[in-house]
C-alpha cells in the first residue's frame, strides 16, 4: 500500500533579527561595519556608551505559516471525496477513512536568543509558540464538518554552533543541539470518536515528548552572489509517555541570493527532506474493529516520506532605517 498523506500547499516564513545593545565586546561583522569616524570616536575602554559594535547578544523572531491540503497516493493526487469513506455501500480499505482532515493551518512563532561566546562559538536558545487548526469532514452524524484547534509552547531547543573554517571566500559551521520535550503531547479536543474531549492525533500535538538532537553542517560562499548549502538532521531518541517517537528527519538544502540593492537580496532556495514514519503508536487515538484508524492522521505508518520544496523571498537589511539595531527582515515563501 502506498502512503496517503496531506501535503504542504504553501509556507510563508517571516523573520526578523535584532542585535541587542550590550556593554561587552563585539563580533567581527559589527566591527567591519564601523566607519572611519565611528572608529575615531570609539573608546578602547568604553564601558558606558551603547555602541553598535558592542553586541554579543542577538534576538530573533520568526513566524512561519503553513497550510496543508489535498492528498497524495504515492505521486498521484487524490480528491478528498476519494479518501473519505462514504459508509455502507462502499468498501472500507486501508486507504479510505470515515473522518478526513481537509485543511491543516499551522502558525509557528519562534523566539530565539543568541550569544556569541567568541568569534568561533555561538549559543542559541529558542522556544516556539504553535497555533494550529484542522478542518475535517466526516460521515459521523453531527460531525459532518468540524474544526479542532490547539495552541501552546512547542519543543524548546538549545544549540551550540562552531565555526569550523572561515576564509575570505567561504565559511563553514557545525551546529549541534538538544530539543527538549517542552511541547504538550496530551492535547485534547472534541472528535467524532466519542462525546466530550478526547486525545488528539499526532499532527495536533505541540511537541514530540522526547529528547531529540538537531545537527547541522553548513557551508556558505561569500560575495555579491552568495550560495549556501546545508545538511541537517533531527535525531530522535527513546519513546515518549504515550509510547511513540516521531520519525527522524534528514534534509539537504541549497540557497542562492545576490545583492540587488545595498539593502535588499532576492533569495531562491531548494530543499529535499526525508522523514521516517512514527515509531510506536498512541493507542488512545485508535478504535476497535478491523480498521483501527478512523482518520489518516491517526495511522503512524502514514507519516514520513520524501519532500522536495522550493522557496523564494527577500532578505532585507534594515540597519540603516532602524535606530535600535533591527538588523534584518526576511520574507520567504515556499511551495
Amino acid at each position: 500500500m502506498q502512503k496517503i498523506f496531506s501535503f504542504p500547499f504553501i509556507t510563508v516564513l517571516i523573520s526578523c533579527a535584532v542585535v541587542l545593545p550590550t556593554f561587552a565586546q563585539s563580533t567581527p561583522s559589527e566591527f567591519a561595519e564601523l566607519s572611519l569616524h565611528e572608529l575615531f570616536e570609539t573608546s578602547i575602554a568604553d564601558k558606558s556608551a551603547i555602541n553598535k559594535a558592542d553586541s554579543r547578544w542577538s534576538l530573533a523572531y520568526n513566524v512561519k505559516s503553513a497550510q496543508f491540503r489535498g492528498y497524495l497516493d504515492g505521486d498521484a493526487k487524490r480528491a478528498d471525496s476519494q479518501v473519505l469513506w462514504q459508509g455502507q455501500g462502499e468498501q472500507r480499505t486501508q486507504q479510505n477513512f470515515p473522518i478526513l482532515p481537509t485543511v491543516i493551518d499551522q502558525q509557528v512563532h519562534v523566539l530565539s536568543v543568541g550569544y556569541s561566546v567568541n568569534d568561533d562559538w555561538r549559543v542559541h536558545v529558542s522556544l516556539p509558540y504553535i497555533s494550529q487548526s484542522t478542518d475535517h469532514i466526516s460521515i459521523v452524524p453531527g460531525y459532518e464538518n468540524f474544526t479542532i484547534d490547539t495552541d501552546g509552547t512547542g519543543d524548546g531547543v538549545i544549540s551550540v554552533s562552531h565555526r569550523l573554517v572561515a576564509t575570505t571566500e567561504d565559511v563553514w559551521w557545525f551546529t549541534i543541539g538538544t530539543s527538549l520535550p517542552t511541547g504538550s503531547i496530551d492535547e485534547t479536543g472534541d472528535t467524532p470518536r466519542a462525546a466530550g474531549d478526547q486525545q488528539l492525533p499526532y499532527t495536533m500535538q505541540l511537541g514530540s515528548g522526547t529528547y531529540d538532537f538537531p545537527l547541522e553542517f553548513s557551508y556558505q560562499s561569500l560575495g555579491k552572489h552568495d550560495f549556501s548549502l546545508s545538511m541537517s538532521a533531527m535525531v530522535r531518541t527513546g519513546k515518549n509517555d504515550r509510547d511513540y517517537r516521531l520519525g527522524n528527519s534528514y534534509s539537504i538544502s541549497g540557497n542562492y541570493n545576490f545583492q540587488m540593492t545595498p539593502t535588499l537580496k532576492p533569495y531562491l532556495g531548494m530543499a529535499y527532506q526525508y522523514r521516517s514514519a512514527i515509531h510506536g503508536q498512541d493507542d488512545e487515538i485508535i478504535v476497535d474493529g478491523a480498521f483501527v484508524y478512523p482518520a489518516s492522521i491517526t495511522n503512524p505508518h502514514l507519516y514520513g516520506g520524501k519532500k522536495l520544496a522550493q522557496s523564494w523571498g527577500y532578505v532585507g537589511n534594515l540597519a540603516s532605517f532602524m535606530p535600535l539595531a533591527l538588523n534584518s527582515l526576511n520574507l520567504f515563501i515556499s511551495t
Partner: peptide, 10 residues
C-alpha cells in the same frame, strides 16, 4: 580574517 570575510560580502 573574519572582518575581511564580512567586508568582501558587501
Amino acid at each position: 580574517q573574519a572582518l575581511v570575510v564580512k567586508y568582501n560580502q558587501s
